[in-house]
C-alpha cells in the first residue's frame, strides 16, 4: 500500500476536504429545506462556507485554568476520525477489492469519536453548562448505541459478513421486511448521532446556550462545526451503503445518479424529522431509545434470523 497516496486520499478525496465540502453543501440543503418549511427564503448556496471561514478568523478564547492541550485537540481528533471513517466508506465504493473484513466495526467505532471529542472538549471547558451538555451527549450516545448496533447487524445477518464490500455486493437489506424495520431504526439513531432535533438536548440553545460548545470560539469552534457538517454527510452515506447498496461507480452514469438520489432522499428525511418534531428531554430520549426503538431493532434482528 502506498502510504503517501493514502495520506493524499485522507486529506483530499474522499477524506477531509471532499467530506467537508460535501458536508457543507448538505448543510446548505438542510438550511434551505428548513427555510422552505418555515416559509422563509433561506441562505445563499455559499453561506455555510462563509460561516466556517468567518470562524477561522475570529479570536480564540480559552477558559482560564483548564487543560489547554485537550481543549484545543479535542475538535481536531473528532475531525480526523470523521475523515478516516469517510475514507473507509468511500474506499468500499471505489476500490471494492481492497477492503478488509470487519471494517464495519472499525467505521462504527470511528463514527463515535466525534461525539467523544465533543464530550472531552466540553469537559475541558470547565463550565457547568458545558459539563451538562457533555454529559447529555454521553447519555445520548449510550441511548442510541444499542439499537444502532442491532440495526446495523441486520444486514450483517443477511449476508453473514462484516465487510462493507460484501454488503454492497449482496441484495439490499431494505428488500426484506427486517431490513426495512432496521433501516427505520437506524435513521432515528442517526438523527441522535447528529444531535439534531428531537435529540438536540446536548446543545439545547434555550436552556444550555449551546451546551457542549459554550466556551468554544474562533477556529476550534469552526472545526467542530466542520466536523458536524462532515458527519451530516458521512452518516447518511454510511446508512445508504449498509442498507441500500450505496453508490455504484463501475456501472455507468445512471447508477451513480441513483446513488446520489438515495443519499439526498435520506438527507431530506433527516431534515423533515428535525423540522417537525419537538425536542425531547434527555431522560425521555434515553427511555425512547432503550424502549420502543430497541424493541423494534430486536424484532428486526429476530426477523432477520428467520430469513424474512
Amino acid at each position: 500500500m502506498d502510504l503517501g497516496y493514502l495520506i493524499l486520499q485522507v486529506l483530499v478525496f474522499p477524506g477531509l476536504l471532499f467530506t467537508a465540502v460535501a458536508g457543507l453543501i448538505t448543510s446548505w440543503v438542510d438550511r434551505k429545506v428548513t427555510a422552505r418549511v418555515q416559509m422563509r427564503v433561506g441562505p445563499p448556496f455559499l453561506q455555510p462556507f462563509y460561516d466556517v471561514l468567518k470562524l477561522m478568523i475570529k479570536e480564540t478564547c480559552i477558559p482560564a485554568g483548564t487543560a489547554r492541550g485537550l481543549f484545543l485537540s479535542a475538535p481536531l481528533f473528532g475531525m480526523a476520525a470523521a475523515a478516516l471513517a469517510s475514507l473507509l466508506i468511500w474506499r468500499a465504493f471505489l476500490v471494492p477489492g481492497q477492503t478488509f473484513s470487519g471494517d464495519i466495526i472499525v467505521i462504527l467505532y470511528l463514527l463515535t469519536i466525534p461525539a467523544v471529542s465533543v464530550i472531552l472538549g466540553s469537559f475541558a471547558s470547565q463550565n457547568p453548562l458545558a459539563s451538562l451538555g457533555g454529559s447529555r451527549e454521553m447519555k445520548l450516545l449510550l441511548a442510541y448505541e444499542l439499537p444502532f448496533v442491532l440495526a446495523i447487524l441486520v444486514p450483517v445477518i443477511h449476508t453473514h459478513s462484516i465487510r462493507l464490500f460484501d454488503l454492497l455486493a449482496a441484495a439490499p437489506a431494505v428488500y426484506k421486511p427486517s431490513g426495512i424495520i432496521a433501516f427505520a431504526v437506524a435513521i432515528i439513531c442517526m438523527q441522535a448521532k447528529l444531535t439534531l432535533v428531537p435529540f438536540d438536548a446536548p446543545e439545547a440553545e434555550t436552556e444550555l446556550t449551546g451546551g457542549a460548545y459554550v466556551e468554544y470560539s474562533g477556529p476550534p469552534l469552526g472545526v467542530f462545526k466542520l466536523t458536524r457538517a462532515m458527519m451530516l454527510f458521512t452518516m447518511p452515506i454510511f446508512l445508504v451503503a449498509i442498507f441500500c447498496n450505496g453508490i455504484a461507480f463501475d456501472k455507468g452514469a445512471l447508477p451513480i445518479l441513483l446513488g446520489v438520489l438515495k443519499y439526498l432522499g435520506l438527507v431530506v428525511v433527516v431534515v423533515l424529522i428535525r423540522n417537525t418534531a419537538p425536542r425531547l428531554r434527555i431522560d425521555q430520549a434515553v427511555k425512547f431509545f432503550w424502549g420502543p426503538v430497541t424493541l423494534a431493532a430486536l424484532v428486526a434482528v429476530i426477523a432477520a434470523f428467520l430469513g424474512w
Binding site: 486529506l11 477561522m56 478568523i57 478564547c61 480559552i62 480526523a80 475523515a83 472545526v223
Partner: peptide, 24 residues
C-alpha cells in the same frame, strides 16, 4: 492517516488566531 488529518488541523490552528489565544 489520523495523525495526518490531525496535523492539517494543527496547521490551520497555527495559521489562525489560536496562536494568540486569550485566556479568559
Amino acid at each position: 492517516l489520523l495523525l495526518a488529518a490531525y496535523a492539517l488541523g494543527v496547521l490551520v490552528y497555527l495559521l489562525s488566531t489560536v496562536r494568540k489565544a486569550r485566556s479568559c
